[in-house]
Nucleic acid binder design. Structure first.
Lengths: 319, 319
DNA sequence: TTGAATAACGTTAGCGCTAACGTAAAATTC
DNA sequence: GAATTTTACGTTAGCGCTAACGTTATTCAA
């Protein structure tokens, strides 16, 4: 027991004994076993983090912000990506429960019924991020994607855009993207207008997807639309480059808008009109809340953060 | 023991008994404990992965590629970033050893002596990625950064560039970037030329760093250089945007070159001259090698992959 | 029918640790 | 100096699992 106390830095060992123990541990090449420790104490300092993908820098931004907080609290991060598949999320939850993790972080929104059931009755703190929800499993920090899309739609309606279109991933893939698109569309529908055209881009969201989606849309529907709303800034940038290649004047002939406020936008000589999402804030505050909950401190249940619309030079008033 | 066998899917239980056990487990809400399992068997199916940062998409690309292989082999990934600090890497190694991980992945290159010592005498498979090395701790898959920088330097020397400069992070921060810069410089020194100027950008590598670095360099040394070699494509793009803002003709007045072949380069109407690094390949092959080593299959010790130079439109022959 | 082989299932011990409690010595109090 | 408190350290049991081996039932060959 003195060894156990000394190694953990718990009081109840004299300085002399502690020194002898540490010295012996060193010469014997003793390595304490967190596995046995976790079994004995029935809690494990492992935190599971599951995000849809790391290819989208949204999640690496959030994850990066969380990690430092976990590290300060000596929590180990067990990581997984779902690739937008709820079954994989469920499997991850089971594995984390088997490891008796202290907490788990999931992308907010939709989960399998079994995932919710397992988490509710397990002794594990649950944080949902990115999507804000009124009915979180336990804790939630995120934004209201529908509202964010709507806010952007409103601004563009007011600027005089009348024939909006959308480029994003195929339906059923990224639910949050769909929420934004729905909100965006609603803003136009309130004015009796509707989406002129949607283009689905399969594969990873990215620069290339935006450029290809833009090309497809232009090929099929030349001048039918005056505005394109993209999944995110990188896609929009891809689209913008396609427009440049075709000598389409943005924002003269066509407006482009996006979502996220990614780093690239800080350096563009023609910045993209976008909503800046508080990714670092989500990560930091979420991690703090989760750690708090693990330590038994009462936490706010659901925190909604606000994206900020940043008017760039890919849109302009239409009158 | 029948329960143990049934839950693990090991043979030695009749189908009927197995079904009864699984049913009972479900109604009793039994959740097997990987912690106890790991203690009993003395191995844990946890793989530690440590990369310098997730802000640089190089590491998220490599990491993404590794993850799916780990998942297929039912290994859990424990993740950490070092923020380019070897002490943090050492601490991570200790934590993974305490968890009796089956394998560990580190960014290749420099480690603390204690890190090497701990890993050599521990029963854990070690893979170093990104930097190729002739003296790996155990396994290694990566590229020769010095050589890659040299190859790019040679090409640009041949194109007639004579006054090269470099923009990257401060010295002592990213050793691999320094290796590339050293190789790049060597190619010019062989011709009796040398780096006209270096600019250090603090903080995260990124678009903004490139733009700021470019601005600083232009402010201080107007027309003293004919070429800038950047840490990576994103920085180079930032620099390119700064040039555009200042109406500096690239590649007419100034050449820009970079490293990595990141996604953005696929959509640029003016692609950046760069070396494309085989990130997905490093991740996939590395993960396969590590899994193989864990399973006791003999593996090649050190695998060197080759970046491919992609001539873009930010450089052109100088004659 | 009998002995041997096989399949199905059970018992035991121990993985390395720590909570809880016990004991002895030193420090403090009155 | 005896009684009390404090500090330092030890003993015991048990966390939940599985390797190894033991037992019983079943199958099959001779």
């Amino acid at each position: 027991m003195s060894v156990s106390r000394a190694m953990r830095g718990v009081e109840g060992v004299s300085a002399a004994t502690r020194a002898r123990i540490l010295h012996a541990a060193d010469t014997l090449r003793y390595s304490p076993s967190s596995v046995a420790g976790a079994l004995a104490t029935a809690n494990s300092s492992l935190v599971g983090v599951s995000v849809p993908t790391l290819q989208d820098s949204v999640f690496s931004d959030i994850f990066s912000a969380m990690r430092s907080t976990f590290e300060r609290n000596k929590m180990q991060t067990v990581f997984d990506t779902t690739e937008y598949d709820n079954e994989r999320e469920e499997a991850f939850v089971e594995r984390m429960l088997a490891w008796r993790g202290a907490g788990i972080v999931l992308a907010g929104g939709h989960h399998t019924p079994r995932t919710r059931r397992l988490l509710r009755r397990a002794n594990i703190s649950v944080l949902e991020i990115w999507s804000w929800s009124t009915d979180p499993i336990e804790l939630c920090v995120g934004i209201d994607h529908e509202e964010s899309g709507y806010a952007m739609g409103r601004r563009l309606v007011e600027m005089g855009y009348r024939r909006p279109s959308y480029i994003g991933p195929q339906p059923g893939f990224d639910r949050r993207a769909e929420q934004r698109c729905r909100g965006f569309t609603r803003a136009f529908e309130e004015q009796g207008l509707s989406l002129v055209r949607q283009e689905w881009v399969t594969g990873k969201h990215s620069f290339a997807g935006g450029r290809i989606g833009m090309a497809n849309m232009l090929d099929k529907h030349g001048p039918a639309f005056d505005l394109v709303y993209f999944l995110n800034d990188h896609m929009a940038f891809g689209g913008l480059e396609e427009c440049r290649a075709r000598r389409i004047d943005v924002p003269g002939q066509l407006g482009l808008a996006a979502f996220n406020g990614l780093q690239i936008n800080d350096v563009l000589h023609q910045p993209i009109t976008t909503s800046s999402s508080p990714r670092a804030e989500i990560g930091e505050q979420g991690a703090r809340m989760l750690i708090g909950a693990i330590k038994g401190v009462a936490q706010p249940q659901s925190v909604k953060l606000e994206p900020v619309i940043m008017m760039g030079e890919t849109t302009k008033p239409q009158w």
